[in-house]
Amino acid sequence: MSPGDSNPSRRKFLAGAIALTPIGAVAAGDARSGAPDDLRDSAPAPDHPTVSDYQPTFFTPSEWAFVNAACARLIPADEHGPGAVELGVPQYIDRQMGTPWADGAIWYMQGPFFDAAPEFGYQSPLTPKQQYRLGIKAIDGLCQERLKKPFSELSASEQDEVLRQIEKGSLTSPDVHLRTFFSSFLLKNVIEGCFGDPMYGGNKDMGAWKMIAYPGVRADYLEWVGQAKPYPYGPVSIYGKRG
């Protein structure tokens, strides 16, 4: 997905992205990692919905400004519904930095590392935490060098162009592979935060599910499958909250 797409393209992307997002368990990391082994597959993660007064625990103020600005451009609010910031996605990403996933604890992280096709898996010694820290620093540094401002202070059109260049691989840094940071971490986490269950800190009030008419974890809509009309009821979260 490229930032700045037209509304029809954005709507098509949003409707399709839900298929890529685990609803019962977040792809980035298992928040239940502290539970006994025999309970992890049955007990839901703790409920940590989006809050209005959230303070980041991992990101510095300048990094937090970048995360909010990038989220706002990747999935902006429009007439169809809330964007990533309104859905609490920055909170979701910050919470993920406190999981074992962020330290690379659930991956094989030993060398050697090679430039390889994506099907060969992640090829970097950097943990997700390091990807974010180095990636944000590199992007802000490039923006300061070329445009005299950090990413968060650029205009929306300038931010879109920076993200496009990173996505295409034409904007690079010697310190971190920016294209990997963008596609494998930043964009992926924004999608997860938008469409995952709200207990992980994003998808505030199930706003993304409402926008694409996704029923959540409802188990009573079999009779609607195959019908050429919208499902008439709001979504339900894992914790039984109704949208």
Rank of each mutant, 00 (worst) to 15 (best):
P232F: 05
R11C: 00
I136Y: 08
I166Y: 04
N203I: 09
H80C: 09
T127N: 07
G193F: 03
Q123E: 13
G98Q: 09
A19T: 07
S52A: 15
L154N: 08
S9F: 03
G135N: 04
S152H: 15
E223W: 03
I106E: 14
D5I: 13
A43S: 04
T57W: 03
P174C: 01
G169D: 09
N189I: 00
E145P: 00
D38N: 14
I166P: 03
I106R: 09
D94A: 06
F182C: 03
N7S: 10
W209F: 09
L171K: 09
Y233T: 10
A228K: 13
G243T: 07
S6T: 15
A17T: 04
D160A: 06
V236N: 00
A116R: 14
L39K: 13
R164M: 00
Q130R: 08
Y231R: 02
G216S: 01
P230W: 05
A45W: 01
H80W: 08
E158S: 07
S42I: 14
I139A: 07
L178W: 06
A138I: 09
N68W: 00
Y200M: 06
G16W: 01
G226P: 09
N203M: 08
K229C: 00
A28V: 06
T180D: 13
S2R: 13
Q91E: 15
I139G: 03
M97R: 08
I191K: 11
A69E: 10
P90A: 06
P112D: 05
P198V: 12
R95L: 14
R40I: 14
E86P: 00
G4Q: 05
P112Y: 06
L171N: 09
A116L: 12
G216P: 10
K149L: 15
K148V: 07
K12T: 14
F113A: 02
S157K: 12
Q144E: 14
L74T: 08
A70T: 10
A70N: 03
H80N: 15
E145W: 00
A156W: 00
P230V: 10
N189K: 11
A65S: 15
E192Y: 01
D103H: 10
Y108E: 14
P174N: 03
I23Q: 11
G234D: 15
I139M: 10
P49K: 07
L186N: 03
A219N: 15
E119V: 12
G83V: 04
I136T: 08
E223A: 13
A45P: 02
D140W: 03
P232W: 05
V190A: 01
D115E: 14
G201T: 07
E145S: 14
A228D: 14
P8R: 10
P112L: 07
V176S: 05
